[in-house]
């Protein structure tokens, strides 16, 4: 579904990605793990067009998307839930979710009724969001904001979701909850690329995993294979 080949990208003169290659097959959860600064977030940003790749290709459902504007890539079916969640603080929870489905809804009137089914599904997955739907998103706790960010991505009915560090800054109990949600998304057949610091938990929920080091994929394999790899055991699962 999502294919990244020999991707180079960076900020200014520093090239962070030095030829990243990875693939996310339809209906699979793929984890991207690695140390801080290895280029995980940059990979996601280069895929969704938040930074322009300098070299290499990104294809979504067979269509080349590298170099497109972020909003255009989003319209083509890629939902990127960014690092730090980035919910729209002053807007209500429900408005945040509606904006997630921006590409499918009429611009002026009747968008609420047209979004009702999707909205219902997201509220079913996250009952807390339903309770707080009129509250402004900025007043939610970190965990709730993360649920909102995931819900917002689901509203787009995307081909692929990129989920960047959903556990960042959350209490351990909430992290467990987040991984339960990811498991449920996996059961629902959602195609997902997951960036995580918690390598162990990430491997538990994923079908395939890539380990990133210094802007390149260093090791790749199924979670079972990675568990047998000495380097991975020493560096990430110790």
């Amino acid at each position: 579904m999502l294919k990244v080949e020999n991707l180079h990208a960076g900020y200014g003169l520093s090239e962070v990605l030095q030829g990243t290659t990875l693939e996310v097959p339809e209906g699979k959860v793929v984890a991207l793990i690695g140390a801080n600064g290895a280029g995980k977030t940059t990979t996601m940003r280069a895929i969704s067009g938040m930074i322009k790749p300098t070299k290499g290709s990104v294809t979504l459902g067979g269509k080349a998307i590298e170099g497109y504007a972020t909003s255009r890539i989003a319209r083509l079916g890629l939902a990127h839930s960014p690092e730090g969640r980035k919910v729209f603080g002053p807007l209500s929870v429900e408005d945040n979710l509606l904006l997630g489905a921006y590409n499918h809804l009429p611009m002026f009137f009747g968008f609420r009724s047209k979004a009702a089914v999707e909205l219902g599904k997201v509220y079913e997955l996250f009952p807390r969001l339903k309770e707080r739907r009129t509250q402004s998103a900025g007043t939610l706790s970190g965990g709730e904001q993360q649920m909102l960010a995931i819900g917002r991505a689901l509203m787009a009915k995307p081909k692929v979701i990129l989920l960047d560090e959903p556990s960042m800054g959350l209490a351990p109990v909430i992290v467990l909850e987040v991984f339960n949600i990811i498991r449920r998304l996996k059961e629902a057949g959602i195609t997902l690329l997951l960036v995580e610091q918690f390598a162990k938990s990430a491997l538990e929920v994923s079908d395939y995993a890539y380990v990133m080091e210094h802007g390149r994929i260093a090791i790749a394999g199924t979670p079972a294979e990675l568990h047998k790899d000495e380097r991975v055991l020493a560096a990430y699962l110790g």
């Binding site: 938040m50 504007a69 989003a74 960014p82 002053p90 807007l91 921006y102 809804l105 009137f109």
Partner: peptide, 26 residues
């Protein structure tokens, strides 16, 4: 406040990058 385009307007004010990720052209 009442139209989706207007909400997109507010979204760009709140966080331009995130609005782009929703498919809103800044």
């Amino acid at each position: 406040r009442k139209t989706l385009l207007g909400k997109a307007f507010e979204a760009v004010s709140a966080d331009r990058d995130a609005a782009e990720l929703m498919g809103v052209s800044a």
